[in-house]
Nucleic acid binder design. Structure first.
Lengths: 242, 242
DNA sequence: GCAAAAGTGTTCTGTCTACACCCATGA
DNA sequence: TCATGGGTGTAGACAGAACACTTTTGC
C-alpha cells in the first residue's frame, strides 16, 4: 500500500469481518501483525477520496482474498470517543527514522481518533487465496469460537457482525455465499447450526429449505459410506437478484 | 454554531431522520434553508473530535428539539463517491467576504466529499420545542407522505430510515417513543397503520398488543363521544430496559 | 332505544414441531 | 441382512386472521 494521505479520507476507516465456513465451523479472517508481540486485527483499510465506501470495502477485501465478487454489507459504524489505534502508532514510533517509510506522515495519520465503518463478508473459503498486507506477519482463517484478543474494538465488531448475519441468514438467503457451488442438505444444515450455534431437526430443516423454492436438486453423490446417497443441491441462480 | 474546524472530524457528518407522529400521520423534521430558493435538508451536523458519534447525534438533535433523552439509533452510512453539499458550498461562495463569517474556512470545509452516518430518532412530538439553526429559515414537521425534494441523498435517507423503523417497530417495542405518556389502543393502532401504511384488524391488534404484557391499563377516558369510553394505556416502565 | 366505537370470545387456517416410517447404500 | 444416514409423511401445537357477539357511552 503506497501511502498518500492526500488521497484518503482522514479519521475514517473500514474494517471487514470476513466469514468463511469449513468443516462445520465458522471462520473469520484475522491478520497477525509483524510485531514483536502477537497482535491480531481484522482486515481493514481506508477510503480513497474518489471511492464509494462500498468500493473501498471491496478493494480492501480483494487485496486480502483475491475475490472480486463478494457478498459484502455494511452493518454498523464504530465511533466511540478517543478510538485510536495506539498499537500501530507505537509501531511507527519505534521505527528508525531512516527506514525509507514516510514515518512522520504515518504517525500523524494514526495519531488521530478514527471512526470505522464495519462491513461483513460471506465468502466461499475454497475460492480465497490469502494475501498478506505489508504489515501482516500472516493472515489466516481462525475459528469464530476461539478468536484471539484483537486490537481496539475488533472483537466487538465480530460480535455485532455475527448478530447481523444471524438476522439476515434466514430471510435473505445469503448463507449460500459461504458454501461451494454444490452442497448436500446436511452441509447446508451444518452451516446453519454453526451460525446459530444450535441444532436443527433434520427433517424439518430439509422441508423448510425445499419449500423456499430456491434449491435445484442435482445428481446423487456416492460418498462410499454405507448409507443412502444424498442429493447435491445448487442455489438457483435465476432468483439471485431478489 | 461557532465553527472551528480543528475541533471537528472532517469529511464526516451526521444526518438525523427525526420521526414524530400526529393525528394519524408520520412526520419528519425538515429544515428550510435561509436561501433565495427553497432548499430543504434533514437536520445534521458534525462530530467533535472528543465525542462518541452517538453523543454527536444526541447533541445535534437537542440543538433542534430541546430534547435530551431521545430514542436514537444509527441505521446506515451514506458514502457514495463525490458526495458533496454543493448547495451549501454555493451559499458561501455568494457571501460577501466582509460578512463576519469565516467564509474561507467554511468553503474549504464544504468543498470536500462527505461520508454521512444516518441516525433516526423517535420523539413525542408534543415534547419538542423546535429551534432553528443559524442557517435555517425555518424548521418544521412535514408529512412523511409528501416530503419535498431535499438536498443530496436526504430523501433516500428517509426511505432507509423508514425501512429500519418498520423492521424494528414490531420486535423491539420502540413505537411508544412516538406517543405521549398515555394513549388509547386506537391511537396505538393508528400509529402502526401509519408506519406500515396499511390497516390492521382492530380486535386482533388489541389482542396482540395486550399479549405482549408491556401495557399497563389505566382509567377510562370519557371523550364525550356517544360510545364506550376507551381505556388509557401506558407503556410499562419496568421493562423499558430490555 | 339507538348509533358508534370499545372490548372480548370463537373458529379457522397456515406454519412450525415432534414423531414415525420407508429407502438406499456398502459391508 | 443389517447398520447407517437420507428422504418423506403425518399428527399435534401454536400463532395469526376472519368472523361474531356483547358492552358502554351520549343523544
Amino acid at each position: 500500500m503506497e501511502f498518500n494521505e492526500e488521497k484518503l479520507i482522514p479519521q475514517l476507516s473500514i474494517d471487514c469481518v470476513v466469514f468463511g465456513y469449513k468443516e462445520g465451523r465458522i471462520k473469520v479472517l484475522v491478520s497477525r501483525l509483524n510485531l514483536s508481540e502477537d497482535i491480531y486485527t481484522l482486515p481493514g483499510g481506508f477510503i480513497r477520496q474518489e471511492e464509494h465506501i462500498d468500493e473501498s470495502a471491496h478493494r480492501i477485501l480483494e487485496e486480502r482474498t483475491g475475490l472480486k465478487e463478494v457478498f459484502l454489507e455494511q452493518y454498523r459504524v464504530f465511533g466511540v470517543a478517543n478510538r485510536k489505534n495506539d498499537i500501530i502508532l507505537d509501531m511507527f514510533e519505534k521505527l528508525p527514522t531512516e527506514s525509507g517509510i514516510n514515518k512522520e506522515n504515518w504517525q500523524n495519520w494514526f495519531s488521530k481518533r478514527f471512526v470505522s465503518v464495519g462491513y461483513y463478508a460471506l465468502v466461499d473459503i475454497n475460492k480465497v487465496s490469502l494475501r498478506k498486507s505489508e504489515f501482516d506477519a500472516e493472515i489466516n482463517w481462525l475459528d469464530l469460537e476461539s478468536l484471539p484478543q484483537m486490537i481496539m474494538d475488533h472483537n466487538e465488531m465480530v460480535d455485532f457482525a455475527l448478530e447481523s448475519l444471524r438476522e439476515k441468514l434466514d430471510e435473505k438467503l445469503i448463507g449460500f455465499n459461504l458454501l461451494p457451488e454444490t452442497f448436500t442438505m446436511r452441509q447446508l444444515q451444518e452451516l446453519y447450526e454453526a451460525v446459530y450455534d444450535r441444532p436443527f431437526p433434520r427433517n424439518n430443516f430439509q422441508k423448510k429449505m425445499l419449500d423456499l423454492n430456491v434449491l435445484e436438486r442435482l445428481d446423487k453423490v456416492y460418498t462410499g459410506a454405507a448409507n443412502k446417497a444424498p442429493y447435491l443441491y445448487r442455489f438457483r441462480k435465476d432468483i439471485k437478484s431478489s
